[in-house]
Design a protein around this nucleic acid. Structure first.
Lengths: 256, 256
DNA sequence: AAAGTGAACTTGTATAGATAAGTACCGTCT
DNA sequence: AGACGGTACTTATCTATACAAGTTCACTTT
């Protein structure tokens, strides 16, 4: 008796259901989550899927606690900062700067092998690629190379990519941009970077690569942003106690 | 018959073992991970712990792929989760790498104006300055320029700075290192960096500057670490709902 | 040779049951 | 009242088994 003609696996359904209950307040912030036994009873399932679903929420810090004590709903009301990380436009506005962008190219073509790999798709699958120069108060600041999975990037062809936030635009079109994994390092400016940013080739640039995923964990975008380090950088604050809330997706054995 | 007097749970032991095999090349980059059945056989365990360990590595993108096809090792660079920021040594150990350090210089002298400014002290005040080359498995990886206020740095003169974690050493001597503010950007290698790291001058390096403070908020250390970007980078994961501890900021006019 | 079939692998998902370990709480004893 | 101890409940971990679903590859068929 298992998965009779219901597409998403049980643990995904449970995860979405639990997430829904938290966001709608059926499970209020600060309250205790029902025990695993109770959830098994309610959904007529075994502990496996229930725990898998709870582990996913735990990885997102939507619930905290455990071992002996029932986990507690932990809803951090502030949803602001992610946008400022995902969206150049919002970030700029928040700083009182005038954001600008010049689209160099927008294209639909087969994914490069590396990009396909990051997106978890086949290399021949078409992606929507965007190459843009980003400006702050008219000053060239960052080169953005973005690659969207077709389903997510399709709406962009009906959008003036020089007009504003693609992130917001896609969100409003129902694209489920939910989480992102950022990798930060340094790289030498190539010929394109140098020309667009008006700097010598080989200059050090601050590179941020990210894979943006849906709430189900499916990769939707792979992007590589290269910043002039004199104009932008990244800041982190951490303490001994509050070991960064989100640095690691997965603390000891929590995911499934 | 389970876990009699062995502290870390099985799946954590497996996770570390697998991570170690990847970082040491026993499982080379791009190669296929042994099948779950083979791993169960090797470690005389059931699929549960094995899958849990693999899931952890998957969440860190150390392995990719699945369903039908054996997962593949995917290592582009060693990633440093922001939470391990405070100690290079612990980070290295966690990766299964052998940390090393070569102290180039330790000195007590008047603080340079910029350093004094960061520490909130007067420029003529003496500070303990440390210049070290950091290694991973013997490979030059990072150049660390650290400056402690006198009260915090004094114990270092009674410490073999080539022997291990200065962070841990200072903590054990009652120095109240509590929180840190990290700024990340890119910079070109200067002559010293180039010589120590064995790279051409002008190569892009990933720079992390930090001010470490006591629990009372008094700055105790200002440090500047420069990483070879092929060997180390920083990773952040965030979601819509979560508050990000990482922020992108505009570089103040201090640079050039 | 090219296409199709199917067996043998792989991982994904789910169930059921058992032990370990942490927590909460209640009653008892001092 | 406060300390102690035991019990019941909770989550964490592990085992064993089963079936579903994707991949690979050799073999057969065309």
């Amino acid at each position: 008796m298992y998965n009779q003609a219901m597409n998403p696996p049980l643990h995904e359904q449970l995860r979405e259901e639990f997430r829904h209950r938290i966001s709608t307040g059926v499970w209020p912030d600060g309250s205790q989550v029902p025990s695993e036994a109770a959830l098994c009873e309610e959904f007529k399932t075994s502990r496996g899927p229930v725990r898998q679903a709870l582990a996913a929420l735990r990885a997102e810090q939507l619930i905290v606690g455990g071992r002996g004590r029932a986990p507690v709903v932990h809803r951090d009301a502030l949803s602001q900062p992610v946008e400022t990380f995902l969206s150049f436009t919002e970030w700029a506005v928040g700083l009182g700067k005038e954001p600008g962008q010049r689209t160099i190219e927008i294209a639909k073509r087969a994914a490069a092998p590396f990009v396909a790999d990051q997106l978890g798709r086949a290399p021949e699958e078409p992606v929507v690629s965007l190459l843009r120069l980003r400006l702050l108060d008219g000053e060239p600041t960052m080169v953005e190379r973005s690659h969207f999975v077709l389903e997510a990037g399709q709406p962009l062809f009906g959008f003036d990519t020089d007009s504003g936030s693609t992130f917001r635009f896609l969100m409003e079109h129902g694209i489920d941009l939910y989480s992102a994994r950022h990798t930060i390092d340094a790289v030498a400016a190539d010929a394109t970077d140098a020309e667009l940013l008006g700097i010598p080739e080989g200059s050090p640039l601050l590179r941020e690569r990210r894979v943006t995923s849906s709430s189900k964990g499916e990769p939707l975008e792979y992007a590589e942003d290269r910043y002039r380090p004199e104009l932008a950088n990244f800041v982190i604050h951490n303490t001994l106690k509050q070991r960064a809330s989100l640095a690691r997706v997965l603390t000891p054995g929590e995911t499934a």
